[in-house]
Amino acid sequence: MLLALLIAAPIAADARRPRPKKKARAPRQRAVQPSRAAAQPDSAVTYGLDWFLVKDKTVVGPNLGFYSGGFGLDVGASFIWLTEDDPNDVVDSFVGALLGFHVYGRALRSGATELRIGTGLDAWPLFGIDADEWLFSWPVYVEGRYWVSRNWGVGAQVRYQLIHSDGLEPGVERDGSEAVPLLFMLTLGGRSG
């Protein structure tokens, strides 16, 4: 009997003790996955590497710019080398540079994709030939961009020269035969923000 009381007493005492209230569970929040479109910064500093698909030449170089809302500015400096010998030995391999100063409109922005339409001035200092040998052109271009992540994207551009110096012959082979007077460019681009 005594043993039964000793065992039962703590159980009874425990039963009388006020139970701690269960913490109210916070309502379960659904994880919100921001869409890429929502993640697009409205203004950003941009940078990247341009590679022009030019026959018998390597044309590659960096670009830098910024955009705000629907408009942007961009400057690029690509360097030009011959990938085959110059029969007249005027240059060894290095020809010069393409300096681009462009303004563009971000015509379409949908999710991770973007379409830019731009114009500006292209200057072609041909240092490899002579320090005073400069050619100029007035380009228009359409560029598609795909932002792989918030900060990195790839792009492809088609450029047409509305007006150009006589010595600049887009779409013309060395032997004078004519092809499409367009310049294609691929770009790997980053942005801040």
Partner: peptide, 10 residues
């Protein structure tokens, strides 16, 4: 195939 010619001349 997308490589287009571009010639500088004088």
């Amino acid at each position: 195939g997308a490589c287009t010619p571009l010639t500088f001349s004088n």
